[in-house]
Amino acid sequence: MASIGVMDASEMTTRELNALLKKASKTEDLIEITNPGARHNIVVGILDECHIKINGSVGYYSASLLDGPTVDIDGNAGWALGENLMTGRINVSGDVGASVGASMRGGDLFVGGDAGARAGISMKGGTLLVTGNTGFLTGFMMQKGRIVVCGDVGDAVGDSMYEGIIYVGGEYGSLGSDAEVAEIDEDELLDLWSLLDSNGVKSKPDFKKIISSKRLYHFDSLERLELASV
């Protein structure tokens, strides 16, 4: 397997690091980054399949605007990890800040620790799996996809969500506007446990399922010309 070896982030600017990564992502299978120093905007806009390992914590917008790569982060991450992920996979071993997986449209995002507020906000596809807890407004304005939180979730979960499903293994603070709890069937539960198992999570939480009530899909009344046919 080809490898570019190790990139020491402390020896280059963010711009140099990302430029080198983009170049390497076209030819290399495995790229390793050391000393990330919790810097923002590391691993941004990589649009090729490759495997990137980051040894340490990263700042805001790490592993964002990606389409293809697998990114392993051994540490914590700041806000908006995995923002607008299209395809590929992101694994972070520790905790992440707010807005993890914001607007992600596909792929898989795994958080080994806790996540902050607005986890999976405006999510449009893919799977966000958090083994710990998440903060308030988890799944805010979610459109599609699946959020799985093994621990507890803060207030206003699923507020204004359109579609998609939020699974909560622990307790939630409160339901958001237009969100409701739905029945979960056995096959769904087995599927979730299988997902956890494949991600190395051995617990089998008794998940609650939260979906949209769909009461905010339409205006309650329309003027004559606003009707589909007049």
Partner: peptide
Amino acid sequence: MKIEQLREAT
């Protein structure tokens, strides 16, 4: 930081 992100992406 968002602006820097978009610059890095482009």
